[in-house]
Design a protein around this nucleic acid. Structure first.
Length: 425
RNA sequence: GGAGGGGUGGCAGAGCGGUUGAAUGCGACGGUCUUGAAAACCGUUAGAGGCGUAAGUCUCUCGUGAGUUCGAAUCUCACCCCCUCCGCCA
């Protein structure tokens, strides 16, 4: 949610940001006009209410007075009440329009976000290792996984439908080892582990900015009252919804291992083979809540943590800054880590680390008090995957595949697999 | 799922339909006292919004929403949530 006062003060800043995202800036002008009218209405309405309160106070005094005095007060107050009611309805309607308008405007981009309308304009800013070289014909992960009997796509469909998969034997163990590995490393870096519900309500989704854009991208339960969370960023950020935090507890860093669910409705025909795009997948997430002066350091910390996980697994990746058009609704600036997948001969997103500034906090009403007596201010929120398990599994299968069809186990993972160093048939 | 009880400020806990945004206690913060601390005493202590350069001033908020009334924390209805007992159950 954008700050109304800030838009009034410097509308051009917001118009510019919208244009960079490829959105017409008309909404800003519409807001300014509605806002001006609404404020005039509120001023008049508050005056009328003040008058009504005065009459009410007189009432208590006049009760012992003459009947005609009381009757006169009752008449005036009644009339005023009718007028207030009408103005109030108009005021609520205006407020609803403004709220709706603001709810659908994305966050203001950071200045250093590169221009561009989509992912083609993303800018590479770093690389670890290079594309893995093979002396044989490298296979895609679905072939490797099926041959080893550790990925069972057919039975996943039998149990649910397409885009659901069963991890079998060493596949399941590898997945569990990854979860533990990620959580342990994140914990060591200062992230507190949480295990939240995977069903979340509308308020939670709205607060993180999922609902205005992605509502058809989620599975709903209980007649649309609850949703299967698409990312535990939702749960972790909402832990402190409607709270005023003590500055001393910031920054708060959380990590969680959860299942995530996405409809992938707009992705028909995309990544239909393999584990890349599933309706259900597991992810270890990192979230930080902090004060504005800590935000830059927290973004560094989250990106750095995600990188370190890939590096310990010795998986080649590159870091990109998302361009203006590719940056998410709630984000000011996002770094994606893209892991090298030999089976696709391409880099694919495995972690997305976003600085949301106060955008989510404003929706979620997450505030903190800078000093004991200071007014509450909005906190900043950041999030990043650390990491997506399915895609990490894919990356391991494809990058660690051997000529004989087996797959080596990354050194860092072996302690979590009772020392197993190779997955064979 | 059935029966009953309840939702008030950071917490605890009052509140005959009319200056009650809300007593009191605890906590927190500031001060006095003290070599220092404790104790004691004094004071401060909700959030949001409008107008205003400011001082300030007005409005709204007692789970949420609607209703009754000149006037609602207080009365009525609906919904949400919490607790207790019973049933079911990983």
């Amino acid at each position: 949610m954008l700050d109304r006062h800030a838009i009034r003060e410097d509308p051009d800043l917001f118009r510019r940001s919208l244009r960079r995202r490829g959105i017409a800036p008309d909404a800003i002008d519409e807001f300014l006009e509605l806002d001006r009218a609404h404020r005039a209405l509120v001023t008049a309405l508050d005056g009328a209410k003040a008058e009504r309160n005065r009459l009410s106070a007189e009432f208590a005094q006049a009760k012992s007075g003459g009947a005609d005095v009381v009757a006169d007060l009752r008449r005036r107050s009644s009339e005023l009440g009718e007028s207030i009611k009408a103005q109030e309805a108009a005021g609520q309607a205006a407020e609803a329009r403004i709220a709706d308008l603001l709810a659908n405007l994305p966050n203001v981009l950071a200045d250093d976000v590169p221009d561009g309308r989509d992912e083609a304009a993303n800018v590479e800013v770093g690389r670890f290792l290079g594309p893995t070289q093979f002396a044989f014909d490298a296979k895609p992960h679905w072939e490797i996984g099926e041959r080893l009997g550790i990925l069972d796509f057919e039975r996943g469909v039998r149990l649910a439908r397409s885009r659901f998969t069963v991890l079998a034997g060493m596949g399941a163990r590898l997945n569990r080892a990854l979860a533990t590995f990620f959580l342990e490393r994140n914990r060591a870096a200062g992230f507190v582990e949480m295990s939240p519900p995977v069903l979340v309500n509308r308020e939670s989704l709205w607060a993180t900015g999922q609902l205005s854009k992605f509502s058809d991208a989620m599975f709903s339960v209980d007649g649309g009252e609850l949703f299967l969370s698409p990312t535990s960023e939702v749960q972790l950020v909402n832990l402190h919804r409607d709270e005023i935090l003590d500055a001393a507890v910031l920054p708060i860093c959380y990590t969680a291992f959860t299942s995530c669910f996405r409809q992938e409705a707009g992705a028909a025909g995309k990544d239909t083979r393999g584990l890349i795009r599933q309706h259900q997948f597991e992810k270890v997430e990192m979230v930080a809540l902090c004060s504005p002066d800590q935000t830059a350091a927290m973004h560094e910390k989250i990106v750095g943590q995600a990188k370190s996980l890939l590096e310990e697994l010795r998986l080649p990746y590159r870091t990109v800054v998302l361009s203006a058009g590719d940056t998410g609704f709630a984000s000011r600036k996002t770094f994606d880590l893209e892991v090298w997948l030999p089976g696709q001969n391409a880099y694919r997103e495995i972690s997305s680390c976003s600085d949301c500034g106060d955008f989510q906090a404003r929706r979620a009403m997450i505030r903190y008090r800078p000093h004991a007596k200071a007014r509450p201010e909005f906190a900043h929120t950041l999030n990043g995957s650390g990491l997506a398990l399915g895609r990490t599994l894919v990356a391991i299968l494809e990058n660690y595949q051997q000529a004989d069809g087996s797959v080596a186990v990354p050194k860092a993972l072996q302690p979590y697999l009772s020392g197993v160093d190779r997955i064979g048939p």
